[in-house]
């Protein structure tokens, strides 16, 4: 239902994405991973038409994305960025309801959906009436997710959604997100640079480097059948075992 064919993007002579072809499995989670500047965010932004490709086509719901169709298509795509991207002049609830209200959806339906979504993402009820500046990082991300899910789009794109969170909130949200993705059966594309996160979420992992896809496959594929040495290097580099924990008693003494 969503695919790119031979898309490429160049910024002032620098290749951000070499001609790339990729089809996404419906109802599954695909993770785009790779080091900074590998083209994973460029690919995601092409999918929602925030940038247009120099060549090739992006197909969403069986239709090629054009500047004329992109605006309507976006109603079928939920988009979440780091830190939520919430509008500071609107409360959490107003942020979530903005598009639905603009499209003239019934107010009772809007309220019902907000209640439904806040229990889905486990947002405390009092947070709904607060402005983004008065929410915690984790709450902002939950509200951002609610806003993306408001119209129940079949496709969900997430650009490093957990990048700005502290480790505890991050791992808590990771397990909730995985649960939500599984329950809603959305087609999800998630961008991250964290191998652990990719392994945790990805039905399919797409490893990228320097504007090209290096390998597409399951975690198993990547570990057992690396397409090239870089795959193994990338996975190894990300596995940084923690140093042994100091004993609690010795810490007390200092």
């Amino acid at each position: 239902m969503i695919a790119v064919e031979n898309v490429s993007k160049t910024y002032s002579g620098q290749t951000a994405l070499a001609p790339t072809t990729l089809a996404l499995a419906p109802g599954r989670t695909t993770v785009l991973i790779g080091p900074s500047g590998c083209g994973k965010s460029t690919l995601l932004r092409l999918l929602i038409g925030l940038i247009s490709p120099d060549s090739g086509t992006v197909t969403v719901g069986g239709e090629i994305l054009t500047p004329q169709t992109v605006e309507k298509r976006r109603h079928e795509i939920g988009y979440v960025i780091q830190d939520g991207g919430l509008f500071p002049h609107l409360t959490a609830a107003q942020n979530v309801a903005l598009l639905a209200r603009f499209l003239g959806r019934s107010e009772s339906g809007v309220q019902e959906r907000i209640t439904e979504l806040s229990s889905l993402v486990q947002l405390p009820a009092d947070a709904l009436s607060r402005y983004p500046n008065n929410l915690s990082g984790g709450q902002r991300q939950r509200v951002g997710l609610m806003r993306a899910l408001m119209l129940d789009p079949p496709l969900l794109l997430l650009d490093e959604p957990l990048g700005a969170l502290d480790p505890i909130t991050r791992s808590e949200l990771q397990s909730q997100l995985k649960d939500i993705f599984a329950r809603l059966e959305k087609t999800v594309v998630l961008v991250t640079h964290d191998m652990g996160e990719a392994a945790y979420f990805g039905d399919t992992i797409v490893l990228m480097r320097a504007g090209k896809i290096v390998q597409t496959g399951t975690l198993e594929d990547l570990l057992q059948r690396p397409a090239e040495k870089y795959v193994t290097d990338f996975i190894r580099a990300q596995r940084s075992p923690l140093p042994p924990m100091p004993e609690a008693a010795s810490e007390e003494r200092n």
Binding site: Y79, Q82, G85
Partner: peptide, 24 residues
């Protein structure tokens, strides 16, 4: 990032101006 968020929501230009950009 806020500009893009408004764009990604699928709001037409005048609505982005009225609902997001002018209030900000």
């Amino acid at each position: 990032s806020l500009r893009e968020s408004a764009l990604a929501l699928g709001l037409p230009p005048l609505a982005r101006l009225r609902l997001i950009e002018l209030p900000l």
